[in-house]
């Protein structure tokens, strides 16, 4: 038996192997480890950033400890690259394999389970986040999760509404840096734009709120299945951990006229969050000049070079930013690329 990491040009062999057992090699994997017997692949495992994925063992070699060798070796490799915290998505029937290798279950949705390994620990992570935020958890509070790409009057309207109807409000800004506007800019615009609301705290959402760490694109074949499981996992993690640790009893969401993903996400929250004692408040979007204000509209206006129309849809702080050098650079980027979010 021989283990080694594959070169890019050999990776199609792994894809063929995985297809034989109903999986496939995803395009975004960073490195792929294989186990060979007489020159033939009998097991494989890959990782992409800090998610272990595309893990499979040939039927007749299962139950012989090959999984522990593969996971040890991939873990060692990740460790050497400085990745100490990692996740794995698997099906319910395989959970025990990972649990016996020291992985801990975070949450499950339908038949998919998210586990974490290495130094990763959802409770510890969130408690640290809570401590850093200085939030007093003796009070119940309402929460919002926003990407704010960029911060619009629609977001402000929703936050102000929550601030009016609740004693305390916490706004989580999605931390994953995959949007046209970088995380720090999105975060700072929201923070500055909410300064006048004394009962609102704005913090970064961290790793367990809408992040690619917790996005399963593994072994789920249909796109709609994938989306539904992703949203269920996210809502479950919010209810099980975030709402509990931050003492949240309400979550505000805006109705979504344009984006299917957000719409599906809203529906899932309405189903799941009440099970964890969190009431979901669906607020009708702010309408201006006959259309709902949304960040995607703002981005498409920027793409068409209509900065003067954007002025009516965003708070002053966002508009001022768009006119800075950095803002102009981002607008140029938006014009050149087609990003969904």
């Amino acid at each position: 038996m021989e283990f080694r990491f594959l070169m890019d040009f050999e990776k199609h062999l792994v894809d063929e192997f995985l297809k034989g057992i109903g999986l496939e090699l995803e395009k975004d994997v960073d490195e792929t480890l294989c186990c060979f017997e007489d020159g033939e692949i009998i097991g494989t495992c890959s990782y992409s950033k800090n998610v272990i994925k595309c893990f499979g063992i040939k039927e007749e070699y299962r139950g012989e400890g090959l999984a522990s060798s593969l996971i040890t070796k991939i873990q060692n490799r990740m460790f050497d690259k400085g990745i100490y915290e990692y996740f794995v998505f698997t099906l319910e029937k395989n959970v025990q394999i990972f649990k016996s290798l020291g992985f801990k279950e975070v949450a499950r949705a339908d038949s998919v389970v998210l586990l974490e390994g290495g130094t990763s620990d959802v409770n510890r992570y969130l408690l640290n986040m809570l401590k850093a935020s200085g939030i007093d958890v003796s009070k119940k509070r309402a929460a919002l999760v926003v990407n704010c790409n960029p911060f619009t009057l629609g977001h402000l309207y929703l936050i102000e509404r929550a601030a009016k109807e609740n004693q305390e409000v916490i706004v989580f800004v999605v931390e994953e840096d995959r949007s046209a506007f970088p995380t720090d800019i999105r975060f700072n615009l929201v923070k500055l734009g909410c300064r006048h609301l004394k009962n609102v705290t704005v913090i970064k959402g961290g790793r367990y709120i809408i992040s690619s760490n917790t996005f399963p694109s593994y072994f789920l074949r249909k796109k709609d299945d994938k989306l539904s499981i992703y949203t269920k996992l996210d809502a479950t993690i919010f209810g099980m951990y975030i709402a509990k640790i931050f003492n949240i009893n309400r979550r505000y969401v805006g109705t979504e006229p344009y984006c299917d993903v957000t719409n599906e996400y809203n529906k899932t929250m309405l189903n799941i969050l009440p099970n964890y004692g969190v009431e979901v408040c669906l607020v009708e979007r702010l309408i201006k000049d006959g259309r709902a204000v949304s960040a995607s509209i703002v981005r498409s206006l920027l793409k068409e070079d209509k900065l003067n129309e954007v002025e009516k849809l965003v708070p002053q702080i966002t508009y001022d930013f768009l006119k800075t050098e950095e803002g102009k650079r981002i607008i140029e980027n938006i014009k050149r690329r087609d990003l969904p979010h």
């Binding site: 400890g65 522990s68 873990q75 020291g102 290495g118």
Partner: peptide
């Protein structure tokens, strides 16, 4: 600095 030893094989321990 971070370091590790061991494995996840049966009868072993993985220490970070």
């Amino acid at each position: 600095n971070p370091a590790k030893a061991g494995s996840l094989e049966s009868n072993d321990i993985f220490v970070m």
